[in-house]
Amino acid sequence: MVRVKSRYLLCEVNVSDRTRLLLLDDRAVAETVKATVARIHGDYGAAMCSIRFSVKYLNTHTGIVFLRFPKRCYKLLWSALPFITCIETRGQKIPCFLNCLHVGGTIRTCQKFLIRYNTQQLHRMLPKCKNEEEKQQVRKAILNCILPGGNKQDEDILESDDEEE
């Protein structure tokens, strides 16, 4: 047996106002991606995007999104992503852009990368801390950044990531 292959794009939603990230949900992201692909690549793109496309994971605190695309046309679909300028959710338009961080073949490789990336973000945050207590919290969060043995998600690490924002 050979499994059906996909590509997982690990993207970061960049916004100017970080509090508005909390408004996002996966359906809004999926709709925006589908609409943009249809706008850029027409009916062919829309058809490709309807096969096995899904939003696998969304962290509204850090703005991390996992997108699954079929392997044979992920480049075509990816080339439409830079044209996203805003995501419409709950009647509001959030101006933003997607920045692709990593392309992986499995969710697990993406997870590994994400943990490394979040550790890096915490290191970047460390010099910006204002008092000693915040520093201690960030240091503790950095030490917690390990890939759990089982299939446990790295939820707790992501959660601690945005405390200092």
Binding site: S16, S79, P82
Partner: peptide, 17 residues
């Protein structure tokens, strides 16, 4: 504007278009 910038990998992939 800052929101018109794109990440380097996205730009490289945009080259395909």
């Amino acid at each position: 504007k800052p929101l018109e910038l794109r990440g380097p990998y996205d730009v490289a992939n945009l080259g395909l278009l």
